[in-house]
Amino acid sequence: MNADAPLHIEGLLTAEQLESLAAGDQVLYTGTVLTARDAAHKRLVELIDAGKKLPIDIEGAIIYYAGPAPAKPGYAIGPVGPTSSYRMDPYAPKLLDRGLRAMIGKGARSQEVVDAIVRNHATYFAAIGGAAALIAKSVKSAEIIAYEDLGTEAIRKLEVVDMPLTVAIDCRGGNVYEDGPAQYLASI
């Protein structure tokens, strides 16, 4: 994995950008991400299964698996680190097949999700689990855009500047959770 200076990426992720990223690359992302976790995913996929319209534009979107703590006065958002991604594995392939471009979370994914990432030329980024106060510093605004009744689990639109990420599974299926430990073990 790559410990060089992080790459700056801004705006919508293009196929070319994702093509240039490899598992282990560190990225500072500036642009829009949508938070959604267990409860929101369940609703989104129920709508897809019923053939109904989604309350968010999924085409080209980046979903961040996160549910923030409440914001203190004067803060754009409360601490907002990633939640474990595997819980969204039952839902992620359907969203990827409808144009979801990238996911941000933490931890391992199922083979079905890896296959859907490769099939759709998408990418899975990892944020550092537990680094919630640090990550919140990169969030400049947050607005609930769907499922307000879910509280912390509502879908929020975040505008982020230099959000620190690591490419966890790249568009070819390269996987930092396999390559990183292997590279470390080879280094000692």
Binding site: G67, A69, Y75, P79, G81, A132, A136
Partner: peptide, 8 residues
């Protein structure tokens, strides 16, 4: 800042 270390 006296904010939670982790959002969870």
């Amino acid at each position: 800042d006296m904010v939670p270390i982790c959002q969870d």
